[in-house]
Amino acid sequence: MLAIDRLHSNQGGMAPTMDTSTEKVMDLHAAVSRFVPDGAHLSIGGFTCNRNPMAAVYELIRQKKTGLHLYAHSNGQGVDELVGSGCVARIEIAYAGTGRFAPTCIRFRKAVESRAVAVEDYSNYQMTLRFLAGAMGVPFMPTRSALGTDIIRRWGFSEQERRSDPRLPDEKLVVMDNPFGAWAETERVVLVPAIRPDVTLLHVQKAGRDGTARIEGLTFADVEQAKAASHVIVTCEELMDAGELRSQPHLNQIPGIIVDAVVHAPHGAYPTACYRYYDYDPAFLNDYLPVLRLRPGLPERLPHRSHGR
């Protein structure tokens, strides 16, 4: 067997598919149980206290998913709920925090300190490039970011773990001399490996029944994260007629053909913000720490709001 064939046969996860149907609407339970098996490689969109796909996150928790391999750049509340609920085995991330509300995600911190999750650190731009590489179908992207730092030198996942797991690249990253000499005034680059999630979860403002999706405001790396994944679940504030979104295609970022499931989930980013719909909820986010302290057994989630919409 050629190495390349072995690699393909060992990829694991669900085979990428392209869904051209015009009717992808389903409920959250169906979408999550169909596209997110235990152990899935999962990426979640949003940024710290903004547009985290919380409705989908809470559904993962309700379905008691385990062994997830989670990818994010700077994520806050979504990461913390998933990690704190015991859904996550490994996490590759640049920043786990919720801005002023939790400069370091509370349950993430506890899980890393007690080694309940394995963590691999990158920078935000490195993670963005990794999603972009996945979206482009190339194995890596180059950057100068973090040369000379411990992000390059220290690995969270061991070399042995990486080599024995076909879902992980053999190296965390690779530093190499610029193969184009000194072109672009650059002597050296670090190559960061593509991320190829089984599934990406996004919460957006508007989506059509065919999967066409519109993000209003900051897009973060959501578009790259969606395009890198084998499957995409989009939750939305407003479920629209696809024709209405297609009448202004310059405002859409996500083409329907890369989306597998559309879920109508108003307030689906709550307690994080969703621009033009609602702000983050400072009362909830400020209560999060004291509530966790009162219940040291780590609640599955904050019970009073996570089911309600």
């Binding site: 640049a94 920043y95 911190r109 300190e113 920078s123």
Partner: peptide, 12 residues
Amino acid sequence: KVRFSGSGGAAD
């Protein structure tokens, strides 16, 4: 001993 948020965009 103590875990912080991580780089975010700082290293970049």
